[in-house]
Structures are given as C-alpha cells and as structure tokens.
C-alpha cells in the first residue's frame, strides 16, 4: 500500500502528513508527498489585492510575484517535510505539478497504485468550513480518503 499525502500549505494538510507518517511506520509503506500549484490561485489573489487596494495598474507584477512566492514556498515546504519523513526512515518521494488541483490529484491517484490518500479536512479554508476539494475528489476516486482533523 502506497500513501499519497496532499500538501496545500495549510496546517491541516501538515497534520495529515503526521497521520500518514504513523500509518507508514506501522505498515512499512512508501509515501508520496504531492502538491499542485494552480495559476488561478495567484490570479485571484492578485485580482483581489488590486481591487481592494486600488492599485490595479501593477496587477501583472503582483500576479507574477505571488506565483514566484507560491512556487518557492511549496518547494521549501516539500523539502522540509521530505527531510522529516526520511529522518523517520520512511521511504518518501515528492511531486509538485502545475494545473487544476482536483484534476491533477485524480490523475496521480489513479495512475500510481495508491492505497490511501491523506488530506487536511479544511484545506486552506478556515476551520469553520470544509475542504472544497473533498467532494470533487471523493466522487471520482476509488481509493480511501483520510481527512485529517
């Protein structure tokens, strides 16, 4: 059984990684840390900032800056989590892809023989609301999904 851990930068997804670590230690399984960078996120952040701050003349600059920061951030995060898992002697690899989160996750989950997918229950949303990705994923996936809380 291979475990796919979805990291989206939220603390809930990090908590998911810790649950996955325990299962992997017990079942001696391989873990893949997976993250999707979606250009629509940087676009929407830049647009919201420009419309709220009345500084839309530089919207392209904001968007490219946010996109650069997102890439750097997720690369750093992945490297740190990978290091942590490897120190715990769990065979772990990481993948970062660009595209639509639900489509890329479904593609990865279906093509690489996973036995479990682990995700944060709230994603990047506040804890008062659910993870908007969950209904899209569970509708398509044949693999059990662990929602970390």
């Amino acid at each position: 059984m291979k475990i796919l851990v979805l990291l989206d930068g939220s603390m809930w997804s990090h908590k998911g990684a810790l649950y996955a670590l325990r299962i992997a230690q017990e079942k001696k399984t391989e873990v893949v840390l997976f993250s999707v960078l979606d250009k629509r996120d940087s676009k929407s952040m830049a647009f919201n900032f420009c419309t709220q701050s009345d500084m839309c003349s530089r919207i392209e600059n904001y968007e490219s800056q946010i996109w650069r920061d997102m890439r750097k951030n997720i690369n750093d995060e992945m490297a740190q989590v990978l290091l942590f898992f490897n120190r715990e002697k769990i065979s772990t690899t990481s993948k970062i892809v660009e595209g639509s989160a639900s489509e890329e996750i479904i593609r990865e989950a279906e093509s690489n023989g996973y036995g479990l997918i682990v995700m944060g229950a709230y994603g990047r949303n506040p804890r008062s609301s659910g993870n908007s990705l969950f209904p899209k994923l569970i509708n398509k996936l044949q693999v059990p999904v662990f929602m970390a809380r």
Binding site: I138, V145, F146, M147, R149
Partner: peptide, 16 residues
C-alpha cells in the same frame, strides 16, 4: 449523507 457526515464530523475520518 457520506459527504455531509465527512464534513461535519470533528474527528479524523476515512471515506472509502
């Protein structure tokens, strides 16, 4: 119901 429960519960949940 499965979606609603999975999103309403307060403890970790596995949906299979």
């Amino acid at each position: 119901d499965a979606i609603l429960l999975a999103q309403s519960l307060t403890q970790p949940t596995i949906v299979f």
